[in-house]
Amino acid sequence: MRHLVSAGDLSRDEALLVLDTAHEMAGLQQREIKKLPTLRGRTVVNLFYEDSTRTRISFEAAAKRLSADVINFSAKGSSVSKGESFKDTALTLQAMGADAVVVRHSASGAAQRLAASGWVGGSVVNAGDGTHEHPTQALLDAYTMRRRLNAGTGDLAGRRVAIVGDVLHSRVARSNVLLLATLGADVTLVAPPTLLPIGVESWPCAVSYDLDAVLPKADVVMLLRVQRERMSEAYFPSAREYTRRYGLDATRAAALQDSAIVMHPGPMNRGVEIAAEVADSERSTIVEQVANGVSVRMAVLYLLLGGAFDTSKEQQR
């Protein structure tokens, strides 16, 4: 494995290696000097076709703390907005000698296309492709769950995770379902039927339309961002009705077990899918998720660029 395109690409052992490595990275990040020389002389390109400051700076911080050179390539105000094709942009990056390309794109499959095309020689890391996947988000979520629930070790066997909201359009949900299944967690997707994809019953998870029925048993409640424009497409009647049926407010949160945590990949719509008092409560891991994102992305960059998943390289040795 040279690329990280889908959370489903990771075996249980590989996923645990990433999480364990991230754990050590996090330890090193407690020090005064956070920077490690590991990727000195390597170039990581952040190729962002979609605005996502949080994800970009997270990858940028991860690469820089490993001493990689970072080139940020944003589609806005660049040759891309002048009509340069995906292929030509990729070839340009290749000419610059990118050792890794972190790609964010509004088109599902863009990362896989880049990885399979042969246009770039380096590792491709999917930083979110359309409504398909966002594997490093799933890894940082799993890392956060493990820290909070399992003292930072082992897998997530038997842990009950509810993922609530717009599953249909969520790359975070897709990657989380795949990774959490690999790590042994029991996932339940909770959403109005309009926001669940056709065929969701074939996914490795359960499905419910009733949040209140799921909450008392959950160890983790992960809320997905609900975009207001979904209303105009008749996915649900109004934000108010959505909040009433699927929003996590303090009253609902009271039904949770004491140890249960509340997660959100951000950015949040306070007052829609999550009430402010829940987002700011002890249960909330939302800020922690951001910090964990850097450690997890350091681990991913280190392991991919170090060829940890690449068995052919070991044989050459």
Partner: peptide, 21 residues
Amino acid sequence: LDVTMYRDDLRLRPARALERT
């Protein structure tokens, strides 16, 4: 003191799991 992240042979052999510092 784990030295994995400070090694100069990352290009020569597969990255490994980090040990505890």
